[in-house]
Computed example of a mutant assay.
Amino acid sequence: MIIDQAIDILKTTKGPLPLPTATHTASPTALPTVVPDRPELQFVGDEGKKTLWVVFVLMVIASAAFAALSWRVPVNRRLYHVITTLITIIAALSYFAMATGHGVSVHTITIRHQHDHAPDTFTTIKRQVFWARYVDWTLTTPLLLLDLSLLAGLNGAHILMAVVADVIMILTGLFAAFGTENTPQKWGWYTIACIAYLVVIWHLAVNGRAQARAKSQKVASFFGSIAGFTLVIWTAYPIIWGIADGSRHLSVDGEIIAYAVLDVLAKPVFGTWLLLTHANLPETNIDLGGFWAYGLGGEGSVRLVDDDGA
């Protein structure tokens, strides 16, 4: 029936049929596609990995060389040799750990960008922190201080204070490396580390120099040179930290290379200079004797007797 009505309308319509006209209908607006920002990855590259392996080999060679030098002197005069060899052995273990991908964590940093007329934006950075390096420094820098303290002739109280300040310096540097961004936490730890370093400098530059001068002019001259060399190198460490882990203006590869140069200077080069000069400077000898050279012997044995005194 509906079809019949439609036919009747067509018969009565004169002229062309009306064409359909476009009508304005509401359509959904196109929304911008929201793509989450990918975090910026600051990881070690090929240059950094190669550097870690090279320094590992150098530390092993230095350890073998220092051990060979120790065989040329009596056991009771090997204290410097033992300490210096332990320094490079620990460093070799640390660099092996870092080169094989151990002793490293990823620290996530979120940076907030404030805008006046728009919502705040955030940038996420993931940076590798080689905490094995801090373990190395916590063990080796006190040994380096012990070498210098014994060379100068510092007393036990000054040695203890210098070593404790040194350990505080390293640990607070580690806390700062994992600190939260845009808070006083990170740079607060860094400030504490710098203050602790000033305590170390005080004991070496002031007390150590005075004690070395009391030994002889040759010892004072040598101590002044090697201690000054060490302090200059150690001062470069917090500067590198501020550029690398602190502000992240230095890549992870650049950080590894910078620390590698400093570690080689502060350990193998320092050790070679110390042991060779010590061999030609009798005033620096420390004759330990006793237990260090000969053990307990018969003095440490326990004598068992019967109840009747036999």
Rank of each mutant, 00 (worst) to 15 (best):
Y294L: 11
F270S: 03
I256D: 04
A260V: 08
L262H: 10
T277F: 14
G300S: 12
G246N: 03
L281G: 05
P268D: 08
V252T: 08
G254V: 12
L276Q: 10
G297A: 01
R248D: 06
I286F: 12
W292Q: 09
H249A: 06
K267R: 08
A266T: 12
G271I: 10
W292D: 02
L296P: 02
E283T: 13
I257V: 15
T284I: 01
G246R: 05
H249Y: 11
A258M: 03
S247H: 10
G295R: 13
D245C: 03
W273P: 00
G298Y: 02
W273K: 01
G246M: 09
G300Q: 12
L274C: 02
A279E: 15
D307K: 09
L288C: 01
L250F: 06
P268C: 00
D306G: 09
G298M: 01
V269I: 08
A266H: 05
L274N: 15
G295S: 08
G290P: 09
D253Q: 12
E283A: 14
G290L: 05
A266S: 13
N285H: 05
P268T: 03
G246A: 11
I256K: 00
F291E: 04
T284E: 05
F291S: 04
S301T: 14
G289H: 04
V261Q: 09
L281Y: 12
L304F: 00
I243D: 06
P282E: 00
L262I: 13
Y259F: 13
S251I: 13
V302I: 10
L265A: 12
L274T: 06
P282V: 04
L275F: 14
T284D: 02
D253N: 13
L276W: 06
G300R: 09
L288S: 04
T272Y: 14
R248W: 06
D307P: 00
E299N: 08
G254C: 11
V305L: 00
N285C: 02
S301Q: 07
H278K: 14
G254I: 15
S247I: 14
L281W: 02
